[in-house]
Structures are given as C-alpha cells and as structure tokens.
C-alpha cells in the first residue's frame, strides 16, 4: 500500500480515537446527543473543545512535517529543521512580548503578535534571499537571527514584571494545543494551503538540487525563485505553527526521516507524506499527554522534545559516521 495512504488512515484513525479522550468522560448516550444536537453540552465538548484541539494537533504537525521536509530538501541536509531560519524564534518572541504587555487574555493577541514577529523575521530572510540565494549564507543568517531572537527573549524575561508573567511565557513556550479554537485550526489550515500553493512547482528544482547547484542551474532551475519559494513556505509554516501551538520541537526534524525510513527518498515526493507523518506524531504525542498519569499536565512540546532529542542525537551520530567513513 502506498505510504501516504497508510499515514492518512493512521491520522484519521487517531483523530477519531482522540475524540473519545478528554477531561470529561462521555457515555455512548452523550456521543449520540452530541451528534443529534451539536449545541448541547456534550456537543460543545466534542465540537468546540475536542475537535478543534485534535485538528490543531494534526495541522500543526502537518505544518512542521512539511516545513521540515522542504528545509531538508532545500538545504540538502538531513539535519535541517523548520526552526533553522529563526522564524520560530521570532514567533516565540512576539508571543512573549504580547504576554508581557498583559495581552495574554485578549483573544488572538498572542497569536497575532507571534505572526507579526514571524512575518518580520521572514521579511528579513526574503530580502536576504533575493540578493544572496545561497544556502550556506542562509544558514548563517538563520543562526544569526535565532541568536538575536534568543537574546531578545532573554531580555523579555529579564524585564518581565512578575514571576507569574514569566511562568505564563514559559508555559506558552512549552507548546500545547489545549483549548484551541476553530479560528486556530482555520489559521493552520490556511497556512498549509498557502504553503501548498507555493510548493506546487518546486518539485523539479528540489529534485535536481540532489545533484548540486551547478547541475540544477544547468538544467534550467531558477535557484533564486526556488530559494524564495522554499524559504517563504518554511517561514509561513514555522511561524504559524508557533503562533497556533507554541514551540513543538523535533517534529519538523523527525517526520521527514520517518518517511525516508519508509522508503521515500525523493525530496519532493517526501513533502506530503512528511506532513501526514508530522500530523500523526503530534496527534500521538497529544494523546500521550492526556494519558500520562502525572499530577501536573506534561506539555506537548516538552514531550515531543523528550522523544525527539535522543532521535536527533542518533541521527547526528549516524551522519557523523557516514562523514568520517565518507
């Protein structure tokens, strides 16, 4: 069976299963009522709390998976991930500033600030890439921007008016899809659609980059256009993902590897299955967060990082071995 069918079925199955998990235990009669009368209490729980949350988990995972696959394909590096360009850092900084300014409870303010800052960082990257469409230079720029947003984030903590605010920022940074609304899900879906439009035609370019930039150019690939489309798509996805759910680590790195492990090596054909794999991973992690019997809820981003970090180390180990033998 085709890999994407397996992944799509897994995602659908998880989506249905997770509809049955939540703080309030629902009986079969409640489910029947929720289906019959969406405005009822059970209906509210199912359609206004659980479904948006699960959809957000799926869509955020998909955004991270797609962004990771594009980043690895464009940078021709299996260790590339969506946060590489500094956009996630920018989004995190925006959210932190919104919280420090006391806008944490205003609907959409934290997300709006996160998007605004992610957009700002993206514009810097776009201005850079239009002049220097070189992936090494872009990685350096990304390292610089990440350091800058990290430093500014430290400054926000430093100037934070109260420990409560600091804790609130930290909680948000740890990533979660709890209490997400349909607006959040729509935002994520919109981001994915936008990215799909941008990535529609990068296939031949990403594939030819496999053989290096000179070969790609000699076969008619417009490297400037490819860089702009790839980098903007990564930025939109990474920025939106942070705006919707906070920082969820390692999904963007691991999802493309999972799909590669299933036999897909083509950097373009990897993108869609990688999105599905990302969705499955975040749904699984969000399910685990709900199941883990801890007195304080483990945050989603903490869990994905806990699983992802050893995986990253393993990848680095394997790559290092290949380079040394190379």
């Amino acid at each position: 069976m085709k890999i994407w069918i397996i992944l799509a079925l897994s995602a659908a199955l998880l989506l249905v299963l997770l509809m049955g998990m939540g703080e309030v235990a629902l009986s079969p009669a409640d489910y029947a009522e929720a289906l019959r009368a969406p405005g009822s209490l059970a209906g509210d729980i199912l359609w206004q709390i659980r479904l948006p949350r699960n959809l957000c988990a799926l869509l955020v995972g998909a955004m991270l998976g797609v962004a990771g696959a594009v980043a690895q394909g464009y940078f021709r590096n299996p260790l590339a991930e969506p946060g590489l360009m500094g956009v996630s850092g920018g989004a995190g900084l925006g959210a932190a500033i919104a919280i420090v300014l006391g806008l944490g409870l205003m609907p959409g303010a934290v997300e709006g600030f996160a998007l605004l800052f992610a957009g700002g960082v993206s514009l810097i990257i776009l201005a850079f890439v239009s002049r220097f469409p070189d992936r090494q230079a872009l990685i350096l720029l990304g390292v610089g921007l990440s350091s800058l947003t990290g430093a500014l984030m430290a400054l926000v903590f430093n100037l934070s008016p109260s420990p409560v605010t600091t804790a609130e920022i930290l909680g948000w940074m740890m990533g979660s899809v709890e209490n997400r609304s349909w607006t959040d899900a729509a935002m994520a879906a919109g981001g994915l659609l936008l990215a799909a439009l941008m990535l529609w035609r990068v296939g031949p370019g990403l594939r030819l980059l496999t053989l290096g930039e000179d070969t790609a150019r000699s076969q008619g690939v417009d490297l400037r256009q490819l860089a702009a489309l790839s980098v903007v798509a990564i930025s939109v996805l990474a920025g939106l993902a942070v705006a919707v759910s906070g920082v969820i680590g390692f999904v963007g790195l691991a999802a493309p590897h999972l799909v590669r492990g299933l036999g897909v090596r083509d950097p373009y054909r990897l993108i869609a299955p990688s999105g599905l794999a990302g969705g499955v991973m975040v749904l699984l992690a969000d399910g685990a967060v709900r199941l883990l019997p801890t007195s304080t809820d483990i945050r989603l981003g903490v869990l994905t990082s806990l699983i992802g970090a050893p995986l990253f180390a393993l990848l680095a180990w394997k790559s290092a071995k290949e380079w040394v033998q190379g």
Binding site: N77, L211, G212, D214, S218, R265, D266, P267
Partner: peptide, 8 residues
C-alpha cells in the same frame, strides 16, 4: 560538474 556530490 567536477564535484560528484549526491544528497539523497
């Protein structure tokens, strides 16, 4: 080209 790198 002279360089023979293949990424994937």
């Amino acid at each position: 080209p002279q360089t023979r790198s293949i990424s994937w």
